[in-house]
Design a protein around this nucleic acid. Structure first.
Length: 273
DNA sequence: AAGGGTGTTGAAAG
DNA sequence: GCTTTCAACACCCT
């Protein structure tokens, strides 16, 4: 479930549900999710600690405890479920955080791509993969010039550039397709062939798409189970993504699917040049 | 019914 | 450097 709007939704939901709870125990079933640390020291860093707050940057979640921060990336299919202690473990539940009030937070990840890492408080922005993240599309410094400077020399397709987290933090496959549709740009167009004006359209449409998606609780497609905070409604607003063969909502021509930078890509051949 | 595709990203290869 | 391909893993769809 993980692009910026979905991660934001998870963050907000979890904030309401578990901030203030104290960890009584941690059960690590699949330890490979944990980076730079063994399961035992991971547990010891958390047991007895109270969750103070939850933050987000790009697609990363930050669980703030006293002295340490737990950094989580959901990758392709990571989900959190809040369940009573008595509930038996289910398949694909890899790490269980038990709280002193008998509730448990369970990390569920069919493909096991997600990551968890504990770092000292205050060092979280220096962590590999985070320190190089680009700007999020909110805020006055996310401008046509910011985008243009990042792409104007590149031969890579504009879609790949916008998926690059070092350029825009938080966009993923769904929302990039939507941003390029609204901007009227062919996803295969090389970055060097995108004008400053068009870069401005991209900046504006990133904000538009992400804000709307956040307000609707994100997008839920191909979800096998309902997960905490992931009953999104933005799937009803998609213009191109998942709409192969359906009429373009702007011009009526058929939406096509192709492959750009190894990713499935939906676009309208007549609206996007 | 085997093979390609999947909301991601880092490492390896060219 | 910069760009492209592939691997990590399990499951769904053709």
């Amino acid at each position: 479930m993980p692009e910026l709007p979905e991660v934001e939704t998870v963050k907000e939901t979890l904030k309401q549900q578990i901030v203030g709870k104290t960890i009584a125990d941690v059960t690590v079933i699949y330890g490979k999710l944990i980076k730079n640390q063994d399961a035992e020291s991971f547990k010891q860093a958390l047991i007895g600690n109270t969750l103070r707050n939850i933050g987000r940057y790009g697609k990363y979640l930050f669980f703030h405890f006293a002295g340490v921060v737990l950094i989580v990336h959901l990758r392709m299919e990571g989900k959190f479920f809040l369940k009573p202690f008595s509930e038996p473990y289910q398949k694909h539940e890899h790490i269980i955080f038990s709280f002193t009030d008998q509730s448990t937070l369970r990390y569920h990840d069919v493909r096991k791509f997600g990551t968890m890492e504990i770092v000292p408080e205050g060092t979280e922005m220096e962590v590999e993969g985070i320190k190089k993240l680009g700007k999020e599309p909110f805020g006055s410094d996310f401008t046509d010039s910011y985008i243009y400077d990042k792409i104007y020399k590149s031969t890579r397709p504009i879609k790949s550039l916008l998926l690059d987290q070092e350029i825009v933090a938080g966009l993923g496959n769904i929302y990039v397709d939507e941003v390029l549709f609204l901007s009227g740009l062919d996803p295969r167009r090389p970055g060097k062939d995108v004008s400053r004006i068009e870069a401005g359209m991209i900046a504006k449409n990133c904000r538009k798409v992400l804000e709307k998606a956040i307000n609707l609780g994100g997008t839920t497609i191909r979800s096998y189970t309902s997960s905490l905070g992931v009953s999104g409604r933005f799937q009803n607003e998609l213009n191109v993504h998942t709409r192969k063969g359906l009429p373009c909502l702007k011009c009526g021509n058929s939406i096509e699917k192709t492959r750009v930078g190894g990713r499935g890509t939906y676009y309208c051949p007549s609206c996007q040049k």
